[in-house]
Simulated assay, not measured.
Amino acid sequence: MARDLARLSFECGRQVAVLLSRDGVIEMVVVGGPGSIYLPDLPKSRAGRSRLRGLRLVHTHLKEEPLSQDDLMDLIFLRLDCIAAIRVDSNGGARHLEVAHILPGARQQEPAWQLLPLMPCHQPELDFLALVSGLEDQLERGQAATAAAQKGERAILVSVTEGDRESAEISLRELEELARSAGITVAESVIQRQRQANPKYLIGKGKLGEIIVTALQHGVDLLIFDQELNPSQVRSLTDTTEVRVIDRTQLILDIFAQRARSREGKIQVEMAQLKYLLPRLGVKDDALSRLRGGIGVRGPGETKLEINRRRIKERIGSLERQLKALRKDRFQRRARRRQRQVPILSIVGYTNAGKSTLLNTLTH
């Protein structure tokens, strides 16, 4: 196959790629440009977001150049079993094969992939199935260890800042407390300082690649960004990582939804969630679906990914009318208390400061 791909690529002057299943079946053929190749959207992973995709990409390099940064990002973002480049010589022959795979044990600041030594195309010294089996065993062991130590939903906290690192760390610690209040286990925290945010992902592509590998290692369900995300960024991040993505605002709304007890409180939370959701109706991701439940998806919403704007607005209008009636009733009760000179006490404090504990102690 390497010789055929090299010859075809040499004759047309373009990179040629094939996506192969683990059984060696060709799933897709892609023809790119002289120096790069564009891969179309691939189907979801064969066994969910906790496994590799079950596909390997083999493509040609016409100038005998090594695997590019774009190649390695495709490896990470698409969670391929591996990516291989056939180096085509000046006569159209297949000379060397370069292979890279995801590195499950990679730490922050380290490459999330491993490059294997160059090997001859005619006799590659690589047991592909054994390699992939070993990689998935490593991933499963890491996920099992994390699951045993941490219960409930697991999240990676992400902060992208143009300011100093100390301020970002303080804000991220606060976000971690909020996550714990919502019953989330924090698997990892990531801070990236950059002069200008990536308009597509907010975070840089290289750092996002590291996050994807970390999510694979720890069986992460959720990414929580400290900064507010626009609908386009949520969609891009969700499509790329295949995990739910929310920001600080949505996390806080979820905490309110968990803890609202009074009728008025529940109405206020539902209305806030709907108003937050309304401009994000076009975002087709699991974070807006109530089918699965979990952090960032409690409260109002439809069971479909695309929610009718008119129905949302009608619901908001109905809630506003209910809230107005409740406020009128509350105003009347407050007026009666003032007439009777009933004292009013307030307990004010931050999240997890112990307000409810104090109130329960005083009233029971």
Rank of each mutant, 00 (worst) to 15 (best):
L8G: 06
L8F: 11
S9P: 13
F10E: 03
V18K: 00
V18D: 02
L20C: 03
V29T: 15
V30C: 01
G33Q: 07
S36C: 04
P40D: 03
D41I: 09
K44R: 13
S45Y: 04
R46N: 13
A47Q: 08
S50I: 00
R51Q: 10
L52P: 00
R53V: 02
G54R: 03
G54N: 05
G54D: 05
G54M: 03
L55M: 04
V58N: 00
L62W: 08
E65G: 11
P66W: 10
L67K: 05
D71Y: 05
D74K: 04
L78R: 09
L78S: 03
L78F: 07
C82M: 12
R87I: 00
S90H: 13
L97R: 00
G105I: 06
G105K: 11
R107E: 14
W113L: 14
Q114R: 15
L115M: 07
L115E: 01
M119L: 08
C121P: 01
L126D: 00
D127P: 05
L129I: 14
A130M: 12
D137H: 13
A144W: 09
A144S: 13
A147I: 02
A155K: 12
I156T: 09
V160P: 04
E162C: 08
I170G: 02
S171P: 01
S171R: 09
E177Q: 14
L178D: 10
L178M: 15
R180W: 07
R180N: 10
S181I: 00
G183I: 07
Y201W: 14
I203K: 08
L208G: 06
I211G: 07
I211P: 09
I212L: 06
G219E: 01
V220W: 00
D221P: 00
L222Q: 03
L223G: 05
E228G: 14
L229P: 05
L229R: 14
Q233Y: 10
L237C: 09
T240M: 12
V243C: 03
V245R: 10
I246L: 08
Q250G: 12
I252K: 03
I252G: 00
I252W: 07
F256R: 11
A257K: 04
Q258R: 11
A260K: 01
G265D: 06
I267G: 06
L277W: 01
P279E: 10
D285P: 06
L291T: 09
G293N: 06
G293D: 05
I295Q: 04
I295E: 07
R298C: 01
R298H: 10
K304S: 13
N308R: 14
R309V: 12
R311A: 12
R311L: 15
I312R: 05
K313T: 12
E314L: 13
L319K: 10
E320C: 06
L323D: 08
A325Y: 14
I344T: 02
I347C: 01
V348Y: 11
G349W: 13
N360P: 00
T363D: 01
